[in-house]
């Protein structure tokens, strides 16, 4: 178990370092920040002075060490556009992103798991076909387009929900569906195949032979073992929610970190974007690390694979 945790931790740390390295190298590749901060009439002394202030006079590896140290202290400097500290801006947007993520996560469980169960116990029935269709569309439909189409139907044509923004509960509906769409299909597929595997095991056959009713077999015996696999994928699920939030928040002008990333992209606000990327990467890698450790704790087989 310890070995497993150590290995996962090492991978996570190396990935984070790689992300920070990409961010750092790209920041230098994008040009000297002084060209943005100083105007054309700045003297050479001012130029050098600012270089010392920003640490640009030091060798690159020391600059990187300083960048890493600041990142560990959650200090990403100020936004180039509005001069606000990046960390404060991100934290301000965090609740909106977390709320939307939670809504999407709940949506994907509430729709995905029952659909998976239904399609597995009634194979080749109507519900099974619905499930397969959902799985196929989940893989094939780009979420940003789904979001826009839903805005057109439910907000523009029918006027049931607001087209964008974050107000009442009903402004959650479309963004949550857009964000959770891919995950619904994934959950459905996983639960379905887990249920089918579980229904095919010896202990189910024994229960049948003993005359246990079909309802009891499905709900008491099979289901318990079929809800574990979606847990394994929760790490991946949460990861897709983090990346997906950029798309969903952009489509619905949802005032979270994803929209902030999109705005930073459009305004070429590099310091803001690098803060967001490191923040998202930590969230993404941190959650999948936690989920993996939790799952390895629950299921010993994972530790040795």
């Amino acid at each position: 178990m310890q070995k497993f945790i150590l290995r996962r931790l090492a991978i996570t740390v190396v990935t984070l370092i790689l992300v920070s390295l990409i961010v750092f190298v790209m920041a230098r590749a994008s040009g000297d920040p002084r060209t943005l901060l100083l105007d054309d009439y700045a003297s050479t002394e001012m130029w050098d002075e600012l270089g010392v202030e920003l640490g640009l006079d030091k060798p690159l590896y020391i600059q990187y060490a300083i960048f890493l140290g600041d990142a560990l202290l959650l200090d990403f400097g100020d936004s180039v556009i509005d001069n606000q500290p990046v960390t404060a801006t991100i934290l301000e947007r965090l609740p909106a992103t977390l709320q939307l993520g939670a809504a999407a996560f709940i949506f994907s469980l509430v729709i995905g798991i029952p659909l998976g169960i239904l399609s597995s116990i009634k194979r080749d029935s109507f519900w099974d076909q619905v499930g397969k269709l959902v799985a196929l569309l989940g893989q094939s439909m780009p979420p940003f387009w789904l979001g826009i189409m839903m805005i057109f139907f439910f907000a523009v044509m029918l006027g049931w929900v607001p087209p964008s923004g974050r107000y009442d509960w009903n402004s959650f509906v479309l963004p949550a569906i857009t964000l959770g769409w891919f995950t619904v299909a994934a959950n459905m597929r996983i639960v379905r195949s887990a249920m089918l595997d579980s229904l095919d095991t010896e202990y189910i056959k024994l229960a049948r032979a003993k005359g246990v009713s079909e309802t009891q077999i499905i709900w008491k015996h099979a289901l318990k073992n079929a809800v574990i696999p979606p847990l394994t994928f929760m790490g991946i699920t949460l990861g897709t929610l983090v990346t997906g939030s950029i798309v969903a928040e952009t489509v619905f002008a949802w005032p979270g970190i994803g929209l902030l990333a999109f705005d930073a992209l459009r305004q070429s606000d590099y310091s803001l974007l690098q803060g967001i990327v490191v923040f998202f990467a930590v969230m993404y890698l941190g959650t999948s690390l936690l989920v993996d450790i939790l799952y390895a704790y629950l299921d010993p087989r994972i530790r040795y694979s």
């Binding site: 991978i11 996570t12 190396v14 990935t15 790689l18 992300v19 990409i22 961010v23 790209m26 920041a27 590749a29 994008s30 990861g239 983090v242 990346t243 950029i246 990333a261 930073a264 992209l265 070429s268 606000d269 590099y270 974007l273 690098q274 967001i276 990327v277 998202f280 990467a281 993404y284 890698l285 999948s288």
Partner: peptide
């Protein structure tokens, strides 16, 4: 395979955004 694991864990849409803003 460890390198593969690292790349699989890399949030690539974010990396893409960084690259685009930088260059």
């Amino acid at each position: 395979m460890r390198i593969v694991d690292i790349f699989l864990a890399l949030p690539l849409v974010l990396v893409a955004l960084v690259l685009v803003v930088a260059v």
